[in-house]
Each structure stands twice: as C-alpha cells, then as structure tokens.
Design a protein around this nucleic acid. Structure first.
Lengths: 344, 344
DNA sequence: TTGAAAGCGCTAACAT
DNA sequence: ATGTTAGCGCTTTCAA
C-alpha cells in the first residue's frame, strides 16, 4: 500500500538512512552519486513519503490548524485564503476547524488540533467575552504551547498569545469621525454579537470618536446583531420602528458589512433614501461591498493579509514566557456612495 | 511532550493494549471496571491520542483532502462549508489545498494528499479540458484509489471516479429557455474559461435551448471570461463595443454570478438600463446575488450540499473497477429583477 | 477479557 | 559520507 523508503533504499542499494537523507532533507549531506541514484529509484518506484510516519518520527506535522467560525462567511474565507497561501509558502497544509462561533466547539477544536500535533494554530475568530469560556480556551492554548505548539490570533486572544491586530477601534473611530465630519449628529450603531470581543472594540472606537465630537449615543441607539444580512435587517427594523420618524438617525453604522447589507436591503424595501435620508456604513470591506447599491462606505480590513501574517507570526511564535508578538495592521475608511451629508 | 497511551496504561495499571481498546474504540470490548479506570486516568493525565501515531498504526488518517481553485471565492467557500460539515460529522478534518485553477498545482495537490494518506479526496473545481492535464490528474487519482484512497468530484472528473453532478447543462438550458420565454431573441453569452469543462457544459445547455427555440448564437455572441467581476466587465465591454447599438443583445447570460456582477457594474456605469435595455442573468446564486441592484436572476446551485454530498460519496467510494457513484443535484432558475421582457 | 509483542514507515543518534 | 539501530505512539494479531 504505497512504496516505502526501505524499498527505495533497497532498490538503490543504500541504507534507509541514506535514502531518507537524500530524499527528505536533513542536516547531513549525501554523496552526489548516491543521491542521484536514490532519487532515480524513488522516481521509478513512485515513492511518496508517508506523512504520518514522518510526523511520528519528527514529532511534528506539516499542518497548520485554522480555527474559524464559518468558512462560508466571506470574511472567514478571505482570511483562510491568506492562511492557505502563507502555509503553502512554508510547506504546510491548513487543517480546517469550524466553530460556528461556539466557545465549546472552539475549545474542542483546539484540543483536536493539539492531538493532531499541528505545527501551529491560527485563531481566526474573535475571542469571547464570556470569562469562563475565555479562560478555558486560554488554558488549552497555553497547554498546547507548553508542548511546543505555536499559536497566533487574529485580533487579541489573550495577553500571552501572539496576534495580528487589525485596528478595529481606530478604524471604527475614524469611520465615526468621518461621518460626524459630514455633518451627522444623530447616530445609530448596529454592533456585533455581545459574545465577541471585537464587537466591543469596534463599538468603543465609535463611542470615543462620537464623544469627542460631542455627540451622545443613548442605549436605544445601539443594537447588537449577528453579523449577517438577516441580523442587519432585524436590527434596523427595530431601530426605526421603535421611534417616530423625526427621531430617526441620519447615520447608521453597521459594524459588519453583511449587517450593512441587510440594512441597505431593508431601507430599500421601505423606500428610505440612502444616503438621502439615512447614511449607512459597514465594516470590513468585503468584496461585495463595492457592488451594493448604493456602494457601501466601510472600513477596509486587510483580511487576506491578516491570515498570512498570522501564519508567519505563529511560525515564529517564541516559547511561552517571552513577550508575545503583536502586529498591528491598519484599517482605513473607504468612502463610497452609501454615505453623504445628513438631510436638512 | 504530551501524555502517551503507555503512561495512561501504567497509571491505570493495565496494558497499553487494554488502554488503547478502552479509549480509542476497537472491535474488542473491555471490562466495565477497567474501562472506567482507564478513562479516569486518561482524563486525569490529560491524555490526547497522537493522531500521527494512530495514522501510522492504522495506515489511514482522519483527514479528508479538499482540492479547490480558491477558498476566497464565494462558491468555493460555500462548498468548503459543506465539506467541513460532513467531514466533522464523520469525525474527519478537512485538509485544504488551493490550486488557483492550475492543472499542475492540482496534480501536485493530489500527490501531496496521497502522501498524507488522507482518507478521501474531494475535487471541488472543474475538470480541465486540456487532455494531457486531464490524463495526468486522472492517473494520479487512479493511483491514489488503487492504494485504497477514496475520491469524489464535484462535477464530472473522469468517467471512473465518483462525483456529484449539479445539473449544469440542464440548469443553463432552463435559464436560456426562460429568457427566450420572456421574448428575448438576441442573446450574448459570457461563458467561463475554456480550460474548465464546466464552462462547456453550461454553454452547451444554453446553446441547445436556444437552438430549440430557433435562436442562433454567432461566434461573436459568445465570450469566454474568468469567473470574476473584472472578467465580466471586460467581456461585456468587448461585447458592446464591438457592434452598433442597434445590434446589442437584449439578454446577456453571464454563466457565473461574479461575472454577472461585473456586467451589472459596467452597464450601470454606462447608463444602460437593466433590465430595460439589457437583461442580465448569472449562474450559481451566490449569497450576494440577491443583494445586487437589480437583484440578479440566476441558476441556483446547491453549493453547500454539493460539498457535503461529495464527502459522503467519497467515503462510500467503492474500489476501482466497480461503477462509480453519480449523484445528480438539481439546479433551478431563480427569477429576480435583473431580467425582464426585451425592449420593443 | 486481558496482555505481550510485533510492527506501521520514517528519522536521528550513534558508530564506522 | 554511509550504515546500524533505536525508537516515535499507537494498533493489532496472537497467546493466555
């Protein structure tokens, strides 16, 4: 069931050790002639190294674990593309684990990946706000790293783990500031689910920028919604139905593009002009954002780069104890047609 | 570096064999009492089976290889979601390999996956039209299957391999027929890249339906384009610029939603009314199709299901020689706002 | 039902 | 520079 190294070695008339050295790199060098002979035999026999055997002998695999909520989500997919590219460049293969945003699934995923002895783990989803969940996950990661595993998060995943940090707070603040600069004074914010830490980060950015501009944000001006089209629709409906038309916001910040997509759909259906009556902005700049009508103003996150840098960071992850690496990646506002001056 | 089975066994006062049987299923049963003791020890020590060792001993892994052109592409991501779900249900983890639509990369990917001894391989991209490439890939798959590997394709991947078949041709035909039914007589088609077999399938469907309706399709009415936004823009620009306005098509069939997205963008920019002057339809029904303006008429492919069924088919893949399984999955036309009656 | 022992295919000391 | 020889951690006959 597959040609083995010993067979190749025998065929080439050398020892398995030499064959191993000739075929699958090693510190030691092999004589030119023998090396050629071994390679010829390998090619002739169609030898393919057994990855499991190599992993066992080397006590590490050529896999990088990728943990994310949903590979079908455009943001997750973009990150995965970056991970896959960087992994390939490092001779590694990504092993995919979906968590559906469930802390428990994430914990099980980390354990599974640890059992796989993957070379590194990339956490592509946000950390959780629930302290118990966060603690459990942190402990699992620490244990994995204590065993020599390497970890990197996308967004902060606990103070002692490496991570690449998209500037969520700064980006959100810049967005809010830009909208205030357009003249908006009445804001509503549709933030992400409470269970995710990034939701709070983005919201905090908006809050601080608005406060700075002397603009208040009441509790009824903030909704939390799943980062989906449906979540966005429901949230904006709630937001508008809950108050008289004259108290509608002039600007809605949906802090996830998918959410903003839902907002746009709902407003279109209701015949509310965007940006004439309400300006709408998103967050992430998914590929589809530019194709919405009106095209969506949003905050661009370098999603693919986030993924590739996370892999690089993870592979360079120093042993626990050393200060973990932190790589900030800029987020910038992309102004498009969905925002404009408030109605007067 | 990780607790081993022997340590658990020693701690529980049993042999490694018994520990193995108690923890990681086996035909043989283990006495209730011993089993409990072993499980307790495992939990206490934090035992995690070493996947590489298990793979070596069992000579198969718990991985399913997923080969696709681009995980960042919405269609690929949706398929991956299906694969991941079905894999998880079977206790397997997907190992991702991106090919960028390159036959050579695909070949290398199959070899890599074979070296990994993955339990099964799912080919999520189209087969290639280039005979040499197709032959090489076919041979690699056959070799893998001869070694006990299991394979399933999404779309036909060679007569002797199992596959799930979205009804590309029938779906495309239905789309063309529907458009003809709306009164269109002047069609243009933007088909996928020539290197992919599905491009031909979809185009064939359109052709046969149009022929049946007595509608001709000249060579200049068909363009091949990359299934991207940019590809679509360029293709429609070519299509329109190449002829006087009065000979413009009244209906453009872009046989990939991303392509259709580009077409819509270009027409919007040119101020061409859709569907007033030109109707536009796509293929696939990506999640974003419904959010375009006008919302895109398209042919719905059950992408996620395609992925999950492919995993099931692969896991049930009989040894070579037996007739390979073939599962047809329906594609249906989804009528939205981007199509209407032709101008008169 | 349990244990002893022989691999699974490869790598890495160690020896030569 | 090459070969010898132990394992890596687990499963699985085969005996008991």
């Amino acid at each position: 069931m597959g040609v083995t190294l010993s067979e190749v070695a025998r065929h080439a008339g050398v020892s398995p050790a030499t064959a191993s050295r000739a075929l699958n790199g090693s510190a030691r060098a092999v004589g030119q002639e023998l090396a050629d002979r071994v390679r010829a035999s390998a090619a002739e026999l169609g030898y393919l190294p057994n990855a499991a055997a190599q992993a066992l002998a080397r006590s590490t695999t050529a896999h990088v674990g990728l943990l994310l909520p949903d590979i079908g989500d455009p943001a997750g997919a973009a990150i995965a593309r970056g991970v896959s590219g960087a992994a390939a460049a490092a001779g590694l293969l990504p092993l995919l684990v979906e968590t559906d945003g469930d802390p428990d699934a994430q914990l099980r995923g980390i354990l599974a990946l640890r059992g796989q002895r993957v070379r590194a783990v990339v956490l592509a989803g946000s950390a959780f706000t629930d302290p118990a969940a966060a603690r459990a996950i942190d402990a699992a990661l620490a244990a994995y790293r204590a065993d020599g595993g390497r970890v990197a998060g996308i967004t902060e995943q606990g103070a002692e783990h490496a991570c690449v940090l998209p500037e969520s707070e700064a980006g959100a603040a810049a967005l809010a500031r830009t909208m205030a600069g357009l003249g908006h004074r009445r804001f509503a914010v549709i933030a992400g689910p409470r269970r995710y830490r990034v939701s709070a980060d983005r919201l905090a950015g908006v809050r601080s920028a608005l406060t700075e501009a002397g603009i208040g944000l009441g509790p009824q001006d903030v909704r939390h919604a799943e980062p989906t089209r449906a979540g966005g629709r429901r949230a904006i409906a709630d937001l508008l139905d809950g108050r008289p038309v004259e108290r509608w916001p002039s600007c809605v910040l949906a802090l996830a593009d998918l959410c903003a997509t839902g907002v746009l759909a709902e407003l279109r259906e209701r015949g509310v002009p965007v940006p004439g009556r309400i300006s709408v902005a998103g967050f992430e700049d998914l590929p589809s954002a530019a194709d919405l009508v009106p095209a969506l103003t949003t905050v661009r996150l370098p999603l693919e780069q986030l993924g590739s840098e996370a892999v690089r960071l993870a592979l360079a992850d120093p042993p626990p104890g050393v200060a973990p690496a932190r790589l900030r990646l800029p987020a910038r506002v992309v102004l498009r047609a969905s925002t404009g001056a408030p109605p007067r």
